[in-house]
Every structure is written in structure tokens, then in C-alpha cells.
Design a protein around this nucleic acid. Sequence first.
DNA 1: CCATCAGGTAACTGTTTAGTTACAGCTTTG
DNA 2: CAAAGCTGTAACTAAACAGTTACCTGATGG
Lengths: 225, 225
Amino acid sequence: MEGAGRNGQKKRVRRQSPERVLQRDPERTRAAILEAATKEFAENGIGGARVDAIAERAGTNKRMLYHYFGDKEQLYLRVLEEAYVGIRTAERELHIGDRTPEEGIGELALFTWRYFLKHPEFLSLLGTENLHRARWLRQSVRLKELHSHLIGELADVLERGKKAGVFIANADPLNVYLTIASLGYFYLSNQYTLSTIFGRDLAEPGNLNAWERHIVHVTLASISA
Amino acid sequence: MEGAGRNGQKKRVRRQSPERVLQRDPERTRAAILEAATKEFAENGIGGARVDAIAERAGTNKRMLYHYFGDKEQLYLRVLEEAYVGIRTAERELHIGDRTPEEGIGELALFTWRYFLKHPEFLSLLGTENLHRARWLRQSVRLKELHSHLIGELADVLERGKKAGVFIANADPLNVYLTIASLGYFYLSNQYTLSTIFGRDLAEPGNLNAWERHIVHVTLASISA
DNA sequence: CCATCAGGTAACTGTTTAGTTACAGCTTTG
DNA sequence: CAAAGCTGTAACTAAACAGTTACCTGATGG
């Protein structure tokens, strides 16, 4: 509507910001970009995320983003990798093998649920990545070994439970983990449509607590001898 | 790189396609747009979906899309509503009340799993809509009443099971449905990242069948007296 | 049998977007 | 302390995008 701000001339006017005396800190800038990108990708998906928005949220600009991370897709992969490292690192510190088998499984179920509850951006990122059939995660080399530890530890707990006569013989560690993760993931990631169609606010504390108890109950019921 | 195809002149050159003798069919065009949009939104999310791509997939053009559906967001809501109508309509035809309580619950679990398996685009749409916190679904007036039927029917089955002494007393119909849906949704919608990180192809027929049996087993175990 | 209108095409437009570039202040080191 | 390289800014550009417009063509009904 208003006059043309863009014309053919290649003239560039430089202006220096006179007051800007901010301390330099590459590590801080890098971390700020990563955190801002995590939020932006989690909120909008990879197609909806805006590079300008990430730069602005990080309090920097696109030049730095491209300097540190290459391009939008590489930045996205970095965000995704860090998200996985986050949950698997916290999970390791549980040491579910140090308890009775039932307590160990219950502890893992509680931890998973509460981690999902505290980190909705992790759930969103998983959703986005699966929408694209793990197109970026597949290219990651860092993550393959991160997950064998979990399955191994879980297999040990199930084996001890079986020998103690409290768990069924054919409980598969992957299936047990998928059961726990399913119940937490679906409830939280789909809470918005579910609350809408069923007319009950799933985010209400009473409902959240009931579902937490439900997860532990269902998980144990599914493998109890 | 090549010469400017666009200049300031407002001249428009019209050309008529000489061979195009296609039969007119507004209903077919409308349906084609809806189907194409379902695929495009399911594959790319709302931010990644391209209006041009939808028009091309439907074998028509943007003019018709805007003519029939208003804009991109209204088209998206239509797609979402149709997806819900699809599953709820099929579900109604099950008549889970016509069987024993255990069979009824098992039947519902099997139906839900198989419907998710056959309609991956439904899962993708749910994921997209939840990423945006049900922003569009909330505006829908058509869907509120579509879901009370399911919960009512399920409540009846649980009550009969309780009276027959096969189900526990405090089984909540919504929780039972959420349990069934959780186990199916998570396994299928997250199969790509899960297969990648755990190094096991979840889409392999043997694994799919094992999980189908697992869902029925877990659901019944969680409510059995 | 022609006036009207719904169905249809494709070029067009203003804006947004990912990615680049010209430039400049810090910071380090020979 | 000066050259070189790293951190940072903001304007720039080509392409892509959602949405519009000019125009055309079959069908329909008075």
C-alpha cells in the first residue's frame, strides 16, 4: 500500500548501534539458540517453525544461527538429539535394579510419566519427528547406543521378577517399556483433543494423579504372574 | 537466473486449453479436494502443507479450493471433522453391548487397533491438531455430541461385567478407552522413532500381531476382578 | 436461444521466508 | 600494537507462499 521500500539500487546504508556494549559469550549465544529452537520447533513443528523467530527468541540474529548450526534442518536435528540425551540421562540415574522387581517397574513408570509431564516439548518433538517418519533422527549417529542400556537394565529386572515368581515368564522388556510410554505419551500429547471431545479437562490435577496411579496399576497388572 | 518472467506491466494474456473437454462435476471436485487435503495435512502438518500441492493432488486448482472451503484453515478443520466422523461411525456399528463383557471390551480394543493401523492419516491429523492444542477442533460445533455415545455404551458393558463379577468395581469408561487408544496410538504414530532408537522394525507383521494381542491382554488385565 | 450463473483455468500480487552478504567491533597473538 | 580471525548486526535477495483477479466455458431455465 505505502511507497516501495525496495528498489533496484544496490546501495547499502550501515549504521552502528552506539550504546550496544554487550559482553561477548559464544557459548551462551549457542545455548540460547538451542533453547529457543527447542521451543519454536516444539510449538510449531518443523514446517511451522520460523528461523527469524528462533533468532529473536534467542536474543540474537540469523547470522549466528547459521554460523553455529549450518541450517534449519541441522539445528532441528541438534534439538532432537539433545532432547533424547536429556531423558535417557535422567533415566539412567534411577538405577531401577537396586529395588525389588515390582518397585523397580513402578519406579520406571512413575519416572517416565513425570518426565513427560515436566517436558511437554519432548513429546511435541517426538510427534513432529514421527510425522516425518524419523527422517532426521535416522541420520543421527549419536543415538543408537544410548538406548540399549535401558532395555538391558529392564530385562534384568524382569528376569529377577520371573525367578521370584511375581512376573510372568514371557514379559518382553521392549513391550513393557512401550506400555509405560504409551500410557503417558497418549494422555499428555493428545490431552487437548481428548479434553475437547470428551468434555473433561485431562490437565486437571485430580485427573493427572488418577492417571499416574492408573499407569502403575496397568503396567504391573500386565506382567504379574 | 534466466530472464525476468515478471515485470511491471499489467498485461494479461489469456489462452484457452483447446483439448480440455472434461465433464463438470462439482461434487467430485469437492471430494477430490477433501481427500487431497487429508493426505497433504497428514503428511506435512498444517504449517508444512501447501495449498498449491493440495490443488495439484486433487487435479484442480486453488480457485476451486478457495471457492468451496474458504481458506486453508477452514479446509483443515473440515478434514479433521471428517476424520472423527469416520472412526466414530465405524465404531458405532460394532455394537459391543451385544456380547459378553470380556468379548465386548476385546472387540473394541481390536477394532481401535485395526482402525488406527488402516488409517495412519487419522493418527497424523490428531498429532498435528494436538501440537496446536486443539486450536481448530475447539471451534468445531459438530463434534461434541459424537462422543457421548461411545462412553455410554462402554459404561454399560463395564457395569454388566462388574455385576457378573468379572470386572473390578471402579473401572472408569473413559480410562478404559484411553488405555486402549494409548497402546494403539503410541505404537503406530511413534513407530518411526521407536524402530530407529531400539533397532527393531515395529512395522514388521510379527511385531504388529504381537502388539495386537498385547493390547487386548493389557486392557483386560487392567480391569479384571 | 440467449441471458445468467456456477464451475473452471492460470496468471498475478503482496508478503513471508530461508539463507547470504557487506560491514564492523572485539579479542587474541606474534 | 597491528594483522587476523572470531562474534555480531542488519540490510538484502531469490524463491515460495496464500490468497485474488481476469477471463473463459458449459449448463440451465425463462
